[in-house]
Structures are given as structure tokens and as C-alpha cells.
Amino acid sequence: MPEMIATRDAYGKALVALGEQEPKVVVLDGDLSSSTKTGMFAKRFPDRFFNMGIAEQNLMGAAAGLSAVGKIPYASTFAIFASGRAWEQVRQSIAYAELNVKIVATHSGVTVGEDGGSHQSVEDISLMRSIPGMTVIVPADAVETERAIMEIARYRGPVFVRLGRMKVPVVFDDGCEFTIGRSSTMADGTDVSIISAGVMTAKAVEAGKELSARGIHARVINMSTIKPIDEVAIVQAARQTGAIVTAEEHSIIGGLGSAVAEVVVRRCPVPVEFVGVQDTFGTSGTSEELLEYFGLTTSHIVASVERVIERKKRG
């Protein structure tokens, strides 16, 4: 059994390490520092941590201002508030001015669980991806989260990182490297490609193994940077495998699936199937129950692969 770590826990740890290395890093939170894990940074660097209270619009504006005087602000709250409540502040105050703000949002997707649909953002990738110049990163596990958090401090410009509440399997080993805009191939194959991000990557890897036992060789690609997306890897996948399934814990409208399809239809049209939330809000339940309820499991990926291969055969 792989180790299980929530990406938000990896974030909290990485922030402290980053704070030691880079004095320009400051952190803002909106009264959720024990949940987003920025509280770890607050404890270590109280003078560089600002709790902005339950006021996300001001939080994003203040992050913009800190960036404008040379700091590297990491601004955290739940994904629905970061991307929804403060969308226009992110657009106008941060992105329009190309300010160097890192928005790290936790509690994304349906795996928020019991809190229910009000708190389960299934739209955040779509909302952030549509802002010009915004980089959008959805790490798959704790290791990739840690690498991404360190890496984005070296990149100049606005970034949105999407993290989760629940514990997820560690799929990368310590040697994993993270480069913005570059995907990683988790398994190679020529029959079909599964392109996933976030919590769905571990499930995509599992699906790949199940399929291989049945003689279907799937390429599994972890597309942790949704924007700018790794076009080269997508075009190769389309050309070399002829069929694609995308898997994300997000609405099928505007997220990873849409981003992949935008490349495929333009560069190399092949059949694509989308595993994701089907244009609906979330609901209360445990994380595992909800993944099943919304069709975000290994078996749903396998079923989609079978469908897309059928379409590929029909030509």
C-alpha cells in the first residue's frame, strides 16, 4: 500500500521549507490556516504571515499589493472562495497587472466531502484557466505538491495551485522533478492514453494496470500543469495511441478535459472521453462515497477506455 498524504499537508510543510530559503515569501490566509495548513508557516514566521479574516476579496487585493512591493505572496483559502468569491480581484488586481502572486487553494473538488455542494468547487480550474496569463497547476500527490510549491516561487507571474483535503496515495518517488508546463508519463502504452490530474492520477495508474491485465496497453499521463498545457505530450498521445480519456475531479466543462480537447481538435483529432463531474453541483457524503457517486473511480476510467477504444475501432 502506498503512503497516504493530503496535498494540503505537503503544502504546509513545503511552505515552511520555502520560508527558510526565501525571505521574500509571505503568506496570507482567510481564517482557514488550520485547514489550508498555512498555520505551519504562521507559527514559524509570524511576521511574514497575515490572517486577513473572512474577507477573500481583500485577501487577494492585499496579496497583489505585497507583490507590488517585491514580496512573493502565497495566498490561501478554499478553492471555491479563491476562484469564485474573489475571481474578479484575482483578475483585476493580480492577473491583469501580471503580479507575482501564488494562489494556493485547498479543499477543491467533491472530496471536500461532508460540507456539501456549497464548499465543493468543481468550477475552479475553468474559472482560473480562462484568465489571461494565469498558470494553473493541479498536483497529483504530496511529492509533486512539494516540488510545485518550491518551483512556482522561482517563476515570475500569477499561479493558481489546486490542492485537496483528503489523503491521497503518493504516486511519485522522491526523485520526481516538477517543471511548469511539462507532464509526466506514469506508464507507457500505444492502445489508448489516459490523461489525468490531481486525485485522479492515482486512479488512472490503477486503471492502467487493470487494463494491461486484459491486454490493453494504456499510456498514463499526469497533466499537472493545466495551463500552459503540455501540447507536445497531448499531440504525441493522440498520434501514437489514437484515443484519449481524460480524468479529473472537476466539472467536465472547462477543466482538464476541455483543455486537452482544445489541443486535440486543433492538432490531431481523435476520439476523447471525459471522466469528471457531469455539469452538476456536489453534495454531502464521505470523500470515497462521493468519488463513486460522481463516477470518479478506477472502474469509471476503465469503462471510458473501453468506450473510446470502441469509437477508435469504428474510426
Binding site: M60, G61, A68, V69, Q92
Partner: peptide
């Protein structure tokens, strides 16, 4: 409505 928030961030940083 957004300028004062940016001012807050600048003032904190300064």
C-alpha cells in the same frame, strides 16, 4: 473597490 486592498498589501510589505 479594489485599490485600498492593494494599499493594505503595500503598507504591510513596506
Amino acid at each position: 473597490g479594489q485599490g485600498l486592498s492593494m494599499g493594505v498589501g503595500m503598507a504591510l510589505g513596506l
